[in-house]
């Protein structure tokens, strides 16, 4: 019998993988992809809660999350393109303007 906890553990593992990608990869494009993984793990847990608690709110929020994720990717990639035009790099540690 598959319970809520199975889904939550799966969500947790995916979340950790996403975070690992964000922390470890130098390529900012892969970092953005890892963020999508994080979003997905959250979506799974929201949908699972929604299913097992017989509520609709979780699913509604999955819709919102997907929308926000789409918006985030659009803006993030736009920024990435602009940065690449100027610096000719996609490596995160080369972008340290915020220190100054």
């Amino acid at each position: 019998m598959i319970t809520l906890y199975h889904y939550l553990v799966l969500s947790c593992i995916l979340f950790a993988i996403g975070v690992a990608g964000v922390l470890l990869r130098r390529n900012i494009l892969i970092v953005l992809m890892s963020l999508e993984l994080v979003f997905n793990s959250v979506n799974i847990s929201l949908a699972a809660f929604s299913h097992f608690l017989q509520s609709m709110a979780g699913k509604v929020f999955v819709v919102f999350t997907i929308t926000v994720a789409a918006a985030e990717v659009a803006v993030g990639l736009a920024i990435l393109v602009v940065i690449f035009r100027q610096k000719k790099t996609v490596y995160v540690e080369d972008l340290s303007e915020m220190r100054h």
Binding site: E36, A47, S50, K59, A70
Partner: peptide
Amino acid sequence: ALFVLLRSPFLAAVQVFVYVGAVVVLF
């Protein structure tokens, strides 16, 4: 597919359309 298991076919469809069709294509 997991969304389908969670009885949410609509979410599964949105997942495929938005993520696969739009986001990854954008990437």
